[in-house]
Design a protein around this nucleic acid. Sequence first.
DNA 1: CGATTTTGACCGGCGC
DNA 2: GCGCCGGTCAAAATCG
Length: 293
Amino acid sequence: MELLEYGEAEKSSSSLGFMELLSMQDFGPSLFDLLQGTLIPSVQLQVEPLPQDHSPELFLNPPTTPNSSSISSESTAGQNDEQTKEIVDGEEEEEEEEEEENHKTKKLLKPKKTASQKRQREPRFAFMTKSEVDHLEDGYRWRKYGQKAVKNSPFPRSYYRCTSASCNVKKRVERSCNDPSIVVTTYEGQHTHPTPVMPRSPAAVHALPPYSAFSAPDGPSAEMVLSHPQQHFNFSVLLNCGYTHAGPTNNTVSSGGGGGQSLRFCSDQSSALLTDHGLLQDVVPWSATKKEE
DNA sequence: CGATTTTGACCGGCGC
DNA sequence: GCGCCGGTCAAAATCG
């Protein structure tokens, strides 16, 4: 269960991914133990309101050790907070159908997208992993729908979409230009379904996206900071969410004022937050079925 | 043969 | 208004 050693895990098998790590009841000690015990000496998970064009290296913390990796969370929802419109899961599905129609009609090219209906930004969660493979297995099935060269980076960025019918989770995978061994994976959206496929072998699980543990807080943006100073573990997440969660979840809200509300939590609160928000609901099965690592 | 990947074209947002 | 760039589409190619 190497959080960082995707590459290693890739070869050696027997690894738990983010999902599994995060699928634990919460960000309790176990996770931190895992992290500090065998994995990341220092994990930085941070999301900031970024300009649309943010290169991954912005988050990159050059590993201080071969095994270290950084986790970053990002979001660009802030760029269009006023468009936080009301795309919740249900509506997304409708929109999907609608889009399908558009697709069928070929290139009508989404006339439905008016200024007021600008594409809703899903909460995004990026993390960096050291891996030799670009596309890390995370338990879900993805279909690649695009690849683009990225400015300021010699490495292309790949775009994947969850193959599940009503699930429009996307992810982007790119390599850091600073450190080609680091893969930056950005998840966008939340899976609306349980993990479709259990890895046939432990080796199949290299990275289980942590984003699911940070489902949309109640607000355009949220920041979570989990820290265990005494363990030299610093885990911070900042989520920017372009939509409001279906459920009322403002028990931990503390508007951050300024450009976009930001929620900041400390480690103890974070687990509560995660729990309260049912953030791990979709990974529970993992937890339940979690085998030894 | 269905699912997935590749790849060039297209669109929209944004900065100048 | 124009060009750049990120993101997406969809036909063709490839794979299992």
